[in-house]
Design a protein around this nucleic acid. Structure first.
Lengths: 141, 141
DNA sequence: CCACCTATAGGACTCATACATCTAGATGGT
DNA sequence: ACCATCTAGATGTATGAGTCCTATAGGTGG
């Protein structure tokens, strides 16, 4: 089955980009990089990071906590319980030097990824405008 | 284990982005969108598309062929055997109108993804240069 | 006729991420 | 006291994109 959508010929076809990707296009490893970037700005706990993620595009909470523990397991962050303050205890994470190195490495790869996307979008744009006014050339049947 | 790498504290730490992501950061659905874009320019067969992909970043052949068949199964492309010409028969694919719609929908999402990456990279850049006088750009929305 | 190239294909696997739940302490209202 | 609700973290399991390895089969050159 195509990864392109859970679709079933019932969508699309007229106005704006409806239908497409279910949940948007995700970038592999982006969540982890984003977490490292946030922690590079200062220590924080999971729930806080979760809320810092703006609006719609927050990752699954379960995934976020697992990601943080994974990062710790790999020595990219450290954590400690914070029992002070109100509410349940929080696990506060801080980035390590190794984590900073990884963040840098990932930023390089993410930049490459962005450049690739840029090329794709430019190609698509040139295709669309090169088609004159109308979209929907006939199908090459 | 962290998805960030098969690493094991033996890498990184000094110069350029070594170590990081194993195979680079990939974008979900990018291969399929790319295929649709190529086919929107004109019919082509799998092997040709495979070679058209620039150097290092070509997808696995098995994956590419599967992707094409998946797209066909979903009605986004059509195919026919081409037994003429030298060599083994090729399966020539052409995009359909539905495929064009999907391509458009995906371009919208991929643009969003690129913008998100831009925000991330800008935040990272400001963090790095602002090592002392920091600015806190807003969270990547 | 053997080795290599073109072209397509399929099985099996990994790993990133999502979805659904679950615990458990804190808090506030009645 | 009690119950609902919020905060905070965790786990079990599913899904599905993408990789790896291998197979097949027709063509081509030595």
């Amino acid at each position: 089955m195509s990864p392109i959508g859970g679709h079933r010929q019932n969508c699309c076809s007229h106005d704006e980009g409806e239908c497409g990707p279910p949940g948007g296009a995700r970038v592999r490893g982006f969540v982890h990089s984003w977490l490292l970037l946030q922690l590079a700005r200062g220590p924080a706990h999971g729930y806080e990071l979760l809320e810092r993620w703006e609006d719609d595009e927050a990752p699954d909470p379960g995934f976020l906590y697992r990601a943080l523990r994974g990062l710790e397991e790999d020595g990219l962050v450290q954590s400690a319980w914070d029992t002070a303050g109100p509410g349940p205890a929080r696990r506060v994470y801080a980035i390590t030097d190794l984590g900073r190195d990884y963040l840098h490495a990932w930023s390089v790869h993410l930049r490459r990824t962005r450049d690739r996307l840029d090329r794709f979008l430019a190609d698509y744009a040139s295709l669309v405008e090169g088609k004159g006014g109308e979209r929907h050339a006939q199908a090459p049947r």
